[in-house]
Design a protein around this nucleic acid. Structure first.
Lengths: 320, 320
DNA sequence: CTGAAAGCGCTTACAG
DNA sequence: CTGAAAGCGCTTACAG
């Protein structure tokens, strides 16, 4: 038994012949070591749990893929739990995961606003991804909404646009606030303000985007760029502008915040976007969790840069 | 030890007082049973593996959510593996899952075309979801593409449309073939044929939908309905028709096959669709797997009905 | 270099 | 009704 174990794990000192005999016997018998027994002994499961809180998975799925990318390729398995924002379900999953002796837990939030910690005195490391924990001592990995918005508006400014509107989601969201803040900062650095009638708050829909486009053009006919709070709004604004006889990008440039990769597929003009890199958020969250499992301390709240993806809708206008 | 175990598991016969003392002690000590040890003894892990093959998860993610819905609420955990259609990665995950003594494996395919079985003589039950196995003896759960298409065209016919076009994806796909077959069947039952210039094959994009709309209207100006092979094509056709001065649905009705829930969000007219119920495909696949784990035999290939979702784009035309 | 012994944390017959 | 014993399948010191 012991000799076979050593041969299979490459441990200890064995005569090459012995090792070879063990390996060929294992091969012949179709032997597959029982990870349950092995992990019982090691005292950990080489498994992590991912608890997703958003219903449709629009945000937590890309995070999941990033987590799996980092962990699954190695020896660590990822148990997926669909918490659906329901504390009862989350509690059920927590008990199940802790009973399975997971090495750690990743909580992929449902909103952009911070959420309460998933438990007190959880005996394994926890990392919050996409949605931060309200406890600043917890390790959280989130996109830099403000920086992403700042970069988007800088990009518009650097391509010569001066009259820039901002159409976004509900004002209660922290992310909406941060994106507006980043946009205004970039404008004010150039001595500019957001185009009349000011920041347009609405819901996260194409329909709102279309509606806002007409509000914007009526209030400010000289508008030459719009920064949108998400992808759906951007699509709506694109179509609305076109219906109003404005051409994108020659007449009005357009850029949106990216929650999902549909910006490139827009039938009329592929829309530039600020990619939140949720895949990377998942990857980094997994790395932080691995670090914590190996005993490194908590990192607190970490903001990951967004990535500017320039497409046709902010291409250089023809009069430059 | 034995008494405590019985109290915690509600097994055997215990005096109520003893049970209560055990439970309160467990509570006080924060005792959480070690599932690794328990499962080692039981000989199974109460875990299943889900191997996803499609890159972006457009199809396998809804399946995953359905699987998790059925299994996660119970005592069975779901390990998510992102195979990415790479046989090497799939092999890695298979070894890992079998070593962990999963009770079964679900393979959520990347394409609509059948795929080769994931292994020979896999020692646990395997169920294929969304993409069938090429081996008819394997258990596979897939949407009924043909029936869904048939129902879509029946719906158009029953609301009075007679000149119906079909714009779809690449002709090599089995699903494209099946959807066209279902559509033609519904038409021929009424003595009709697909509108000129016949089935329009292209790629799965909005751009192709726009282009096809103009081909269709030029070849057949009296067109009064279009059945589209997927959601993106449907969006493109909707916009293309509008640009050609046709109104949806009064002039031309529109319905698409649903891969993703974006049909309802279309800014101009919410588009009717054939929902493939991938969530249900996942749920049923999980149920079949549970059945197989409990010793029920294989089910072979199972087609799940699609669901017609009537929205504005096929609303009754105003002249009815 | 090899193999017998102990033990990871449980559960299940089986004596008392 | 309760508890001592054996064992699930491994790995790790420790004798030989």
């Amino acid at each position: 038994m012991a000799t076979a174990s050593k041969a299979l794990n490459g441990a200890g000192t064995l005569r090459p012949g012995t090792r070879a005999r063990v390996l060929s016997a294992a091969e012949e018998l179709g032997f597959v070591p029982n990870a349950l027994a092995r992990n019982l002994l090691r005292g950990r499961s080489f498994t992590v749990g991912l608890i997703a809180s958003d219903i449709v998975g629009r945000f937590s799925i890309p995070v999941l893929l990033g987590v799996e990318d980092t962990l699954g390729a190695g020896q660590i398995a990822v148990i997926f739990c669909d918490g659906r924002g329901d504390p009862i379900r989350e509690g059920h999953y927590m008990r199940s995961l802790l009973s399975r002796r997971v090495d750690g837990i990743i909580v992929a939030g449902g909103q952009t606003d911070p959420r309460p910690p998933i438990g007190t005195a959880v005996p394994v490391p926890v990392v919050y991804a996409w949605t931060a924990s309200t406890d600043p001592k917890d390790t959280s990995v989130v996109p830099d909404h403000e920086g992403g918005a700042y970069g988007a508006v800088r990009h518009l400014l650097m391509t010569g646009r001066r009259t820039i509107g901002h159409v976004t989601g509900p004002s209660q969201f922290r992310s909406v606030e941060l994106r507006a803040k980043g946009a205004l900062k970039a404008l004010s650095e150039e001595g500019l303000e957001v185009a009349l009638p000011g920041v347009l708050y609405g819901d996260w829909s194409e329909a709102w985007g279309r509606q806002a486009a007409s509000v914007l053009v009526r209030a400010c006919p000289e508008i030459d760029a719009v920064f949108c709070g998400n992808d759906e709004i951007a699509r709506g604004v694109a179509d609305g502008l076109r219906d109003l006889g404005r051409t994108v990008p020659d007449d009005v440039a357009l850029i949106g915040f990216d929650n999902w990769e549909i910006m490139a597929s827009h039938a009329r003009v592929p829309i530039s976007s600020v990619d939140m890199n949720l895949h990377e958020v998942g990857r980094v969250a997994a790395q932080r969790l691995l670090g914590a499992i190996e005993g490194q301390g908590a990192h607190g709240l970490e903001h990951l840069p967004c990535q500017l993806v320039v497409r046709q809708s902010t291409g250089l206008a023809s009069h430059f």
